[in-house]
Nucleic acid binder design. Structure first.
Length: 266
DNA sequence: ATGCCCTATGATATAGGA
């Protein structure tokens, strides 16, 4: 089973690239983030034509997440348990589903903007709701392969940004954000590190200043998986090709291949 | 090489991204 996560930075603007990528990469389950559309405006038709059913959770101009699957899409959950509001709104940043015997969450963690901004406190509160949701789901079915995948908007270590000196007084690298990731790991999830291509683990490169061709990237799209999921994982990588050329998202897909769960024959 | 910001909006500037 092939599972991927991709912040597409608008499904409307990215649809040609997304369809092209689905046909070429043939993933079974895909988590999308930053749809920038409403649930009703999600392009179900062309995606269904490629064999995927989808659940989209979006409320307009910003945010929005989806799960695509060609191996079943069951027990769909919109939003986290106790998900905090921002400016009075529960934003569309999380959707979970069980696909082909694997429980997956597509998450788009708030950016945080600046360490002294309200959005940063919101980000940390959002992580706490994610931790709580994960804890209760893992306890309910410890043997179920389980992963939270998406844009976490945190670089787990200094090696996950091209130059840590550029991040003084910035979000994405602060001790509190990294502690939020550590708290998730403490609930039983592991950071499934992608195989390094060109010596870089990055999943995001800013559009500005030619960041991609200069190697100015960040690893902020992550796969946080429990032991049963990790035990099935064969290979994990970033599809840098999808970041190239005209009309690309500023994020690349992060992909993991799992062996299909073994069926015991008599 | 991959090539020097992009996207959506009651738009013609602004907010957000990270």
């Amino acid at each position: 089973m092939r599972i991927a996560t991709w912040n597409v930075n608008s499904i409307g603007a990215r649809l040609p690239r997304v369809l092209e990528w689905l046909e070429a990469a043939e993933p079974d389950v895909v988590a999308l983030q930053e749809l920038k559309c409403t649930s009703d405006d999600f392009p179900h038709l062309p995606i269904r034509a490629l064999g995927y059913e989808a659940v989209a959770h979006g409320n307009g101009r910003w945010n929005g997440v989806a799960l695509l699957s060609r191996v079943g899409l069951e027990d769909v959950t919109l939003d986290l348990s106790g998900q905090p509001e921002y400016e009075g709104v529960v934003e569309t940043r999380a959707v979970g589903a069980t696909c082909g015997g694997v429980r997956v969450w597509s998450v788009y963690v708030p950016n945080g903007r600046e360490p002294d901004h309200d959005h940063y406190a919101y980000k940390l509160a959002w992580f706490d709701a994610l931790r709580g949701t994960v804890a209760s789901e893992l306890a309910a079915d410890p043997a179920l392969p389980y992963a939270v995948i998406g844009d976490f908007n945190v670089a787990p270590t200094d090696a996950d940004v091209w130059d840590i000196a550029q991040f003084a007084n910035s979000t994405h690298v602060t001790p509190a954000e990294r502690q939020a990731l550590a708290d998730l790991r403490a609930e039983g999830l592991a950071d499934l590190m992608p195989r390094s291509l060109k010596g870089e683990p990055y999943t995001f490169w800013d559009y500005r200043n030619g960041a991609f061709h200069r190697g100015w990237g960040m690893r902020i799209d992550l796969i946080y998986a429990n032991s049963p999921f990790v035990a099935l994982a064969q290979d994990t990588w970033v599809d840098r090709e999808a970041r190239k050329g005209k009309g690309a998202s500023d994020h690349a897909p992060l992909v993991v291949d799992l062996t299909d769960p073994v069926t015991v024959s008599p």
